[in-house]
Design a protein around this nucleic acid. Structure first.
Lengths: 215, 215, 215, 215
DNA sequence: AATGAATGAGCTTTCATTCAT
DNA sequence: TATGAATGAAAGCTCATTCAT
C-alpha cells in the first residue's frame, strides 16, 4: 500500500502524463489541420485550451515535442498491429490478410492521421531522429510479414515465389495506397484499395486467397 | 524576323527564365538537404550564389516559389513519363513495364529527389494548391495505366481481373517503394524493388510477364 | 518564561529565519557561479534543494531577495570589520594594519565572494537600493579609518599628511586589489597584495610601519 | 584607384562599420542607464533609433554584442593609455604621473562609463570571454607601469622599493578610486582622489614627486 | 509551510518582405 | 536587374509570479 506522500507523487505523475498526452493529441490535430510547417507552439497550446508556455514546460522544446509526437504515432500503430496479430487465428494466411485489412480500416487509413504521418515522412531525410524512429518499426514489420509469407509459401508449395519480395511488395502497396488516400481523396475509396491488395494476394497465393468481389 | 528591340526583349525573357530555373533548382537542393520546414529564402539565394532579395524579385513570395517548384517537379516527371511511352514499342505490356522501370531508375528513385516530393506531399492536406497540382497529374497517369492494363487484359483474356484495380495497385506499389527508399535507405535496393513490381505483373498477367528479369 | 503558544511562535520564527538564510546562501552561491544576470529563482531553489515557489514564499519577489542578499553580505562584512577592531589592541597603528590584513584574508578576499560583491557593484548605478546599502557602510568605514589615520598622524607628528587622503587611498587600495583578485586570478597573489598595502603604510607612516612583514 | 564596384563595396563596408559602432555606443548608453541585467536588445535598438531586428543583423546574438562592446571599451581605453604615453616627455616620473592623472580625468573617471566597466567586471567570473579580454589588457598595463617604476627606482636609488609592488599598488589604487566614484558619488571628488595617488607617489618616490596641495 | 503545475509577459531570435542604391 | 541593409511581425523560449493542493 502507498503512503499518503507516495500516493501524491503517483497522482502527480499520472496527471503529468495526462497533460503530455493531451499536448501530443493537440499537436496531431494541429499538424493534421495546418501542416507541420505552420504549426506553432501557440497553436498547440490554444488547441489544448492551455497557456503559451505549457509546451516548453512539459517538452522543453518544440523539436522534442515533435519527436515525442512521432514516437506516439509509431507506438499507437504498433499496438494496433500487434493486437491484430494476437486476435487472428493461428493461420498465416488469415493473419496476413488481417494485417492488410487493418492498414485500410478507417481508424488508420484516415486523411487526418495520414496527413500527420506524411508530414513526418516529408522531413525524414533532414531530421535523423525521425528516420531512426520510422526505420526501427518498419524493419520489425517487414520481418513479421516476411515470416508470414514464408509460412504461406511453404504451406502452398509456391515454387517461384520469394518471401522477401512479397513482403516488400505488400508493405509498399499499403504505403502507396495511403498516399493515394491523402493526395487523391476524391478518387480514393477503401473498397477499391482493398481490391488492389487482394488482387496481389490472389494472384500470388491462389490457393490461399480467392477474389470475393468479381467484376 | 525579330527587330532589334524585340530581340532584346526576347533575350531578356530568356535570361529571366534562366534565373527562375536556377532558383527553382536551388530550392530543390535546399529542401532535399534541410527539409521544407527549415528552408529559408536566404538559404535558396545562398545556394544559388545570389543575393538575399533575389527570390522575391523573381517569384514575389515564398509561397509562389514553392508552388512553382512543385509544378516544375511535376512537369519534369511528366516529361519523363511521356517520353518513356513514346520510346516504347507499340505494345501495352512492354510500355507498362517500361513505365514501372522508369519509376525505379536512379534519376527518379533517388533519395534527394524523393525527399522533395515527400516534403510537398507532407503538406498536401494543408496547402490546397499542392493537392491540385498533384491530383491533376495523378489522374492522368492513372488513366494511362488503366488503358494499358485494359489492353493487356483484352489481349490475354484475363477474366477475373479489373483494370482499375491493377492500375491503382501498380501506382501505389511504386509510391510505396519510393517511401521505402526514403525511409529505409539501408534496406532498400533497386533490384529487390523491381522484383516486387515484377512479382505483381507476373502473377496477374502470367502470359505477358515471366518471373526472371528477361525484359 | 514563554507560554507554550509563545514558544511555538518563537520556534516558527527561528525556522523561518533559517529558511531565509538558506535561500540567501543559495543565492550567493548561484551568483558566484553563474553571475547575477543568469541567476534565476529556479536556480536558487534548486541549489537549496527546495521547490520552485519557495523564494516568493519567503521573499515575495526576486528584487527583494537580491536586496536582502546584498544586505546580508554587508552585515557579514561589517561583523568581521567590527570584530577585527574589537580584537585589536588599543593601538591605532595595529588596528589599521589589522583591518587591511582582514580585507586580504582568504575568507574575504576570495574570488567566489568577490564575484558576488562585484555583481552588485555592477548594478549600483541602475539600482538605487544597492547604492544606498553600499554607500551607508562605506561612509562608516571611511570615518573609522579616517579616525585611525588621524590618531596615527598625531602620534607620529606626520606634518604633511592628510588623514582623509590616507583613508581614501587605503580603502581604494583594497577595493582595487579585490578587482585584481577577481579579474587576474593567475597573476594575483595575496602576499604581493599585502606588500602593496604595506608599501603605502611604510612610506606614509615610516615611524609606525616597517617594510618587512613584522606585523 | 578603385573601380566603381570596389568603391561601392568599400563604401558599404564603411557604412556597416558605422552602424556597428552606432549600436555599440547605444549599448554602452543603455548599460550605463539601466544596467547590464535589464538592457534588452529592444532597448539598444530603440536608443539607436532603429528597428528590433537590427542588432542580430549586425551582431548575430546578444552575447556577441556584449563581447564586442567590452572589446570596444578596452580598445578605447587602450588608445587613451598609449596616447598618454606618447605625449609624455621622455621621463619615467612624468609619464607615470600622466598615466595616473589620465585615469582620473573626467572623460575616463566618469560614472556613466564606469558603470559599464563595472557591469562587465560584475560578470567577469561567470563569462570567461570577459575575463580573457580584461586580463589581456591588464597584464599589458601592469608591465608598462612596472617598467616605469623600475626606471624611477634606478634613477632615484630607492633601495627598499619593489617595482612590482608599486605597480600593483598604483593600478589597484585607481581601480579602487573608480569604485569609489561609482558607489559614493556624493563623497567622491576628483581632487581628493588625485591627492590619494599623489600621497603614495610622494611617499614612495620623494625625490621624484612633491605634494602640491599641502594641508 | 511547502510544493510544483500553470500562467503570461517579455525576451532573443528568425526571416519573409521591402526598398534605396 | 540585382544588391544587401533594414524592417517588423511572429516565432520559440525563459522565467518571475501565482495558486490549488
Amino acid at each position: 500500500m502507498l503512503s499518503v506522500a507516495e500516493e501524491k507523487v503517483s497522482r502527480r505523475a499520472i496527471a503529468k502524463e495526462h497533460r503530455r498526452q493531451q499536448l501530443i493529441d493537440s499537436t496531431i490535430k494541429c499538424i493534421s489541420k495546418k501542416g507541420l510547417r505552420s504549426t506553432t507552439l501557440a497553436d498547440v497550446a490554444r488547441e489544448a485550451g492551455l497557456s503559451q508556455g505549457i509546451v516548453n514546460l512539459h517538452f522543453n522544446s518544440k523539436d522534442n515535442l515533435l519527436n515525442e509526437t512521432l514516437k506516439f504515432l509509431a507506438v499507437e500503430y504498433d499496438r494496433e498491429f500487434m493486437r491484430t496479430i494476437e486476435k487472428s487465428p493461428d493461420d498465416a494466411g488469415a493473419t496476413l490478410l488481417a494485417l492488410m485489412k487493418m492498414d485500410l480500416k478507417p481508424a488508420i487509413c484516415d486523411r487526418k492521421k495520414l496527413a500527420v504521418w506524411f508530414a513526418f515522412w516529408g522531413e525524414v531525410r533532414s531530421v535523423p531522429t525521425y528516420q531512426k524512429i520510422c526505420a526501427a518499426y518498419d524493419d520489425k514489420y517487414d520481418e513479421i510479414i516476411f515470416d508470414l509469407a514464408n509460412t504461406i509459401i511453404q504451406e502452398g508449395n509456391y515454387a517461384d515465389i520469394d518471401a522477401k519480395t512479397v513482403a516488400e511488395a505488400l508493405s509498399s502497396l499499403t504505403d502507396g495506397l495511403w498516399l493515394s488516400c491523402l493526395v487523391n481523396p476524391k478518387t480514393f475509396d477503401r473498397g477499391t484499395a482493398l481490391n488492389s491488395v487482394m488482387s496481389y494476394l490472389c494472384a500470388v497465393f491462389p490457393d490461399h486467397y480467392q477474389n470475393e468481389n468479381r467484376h
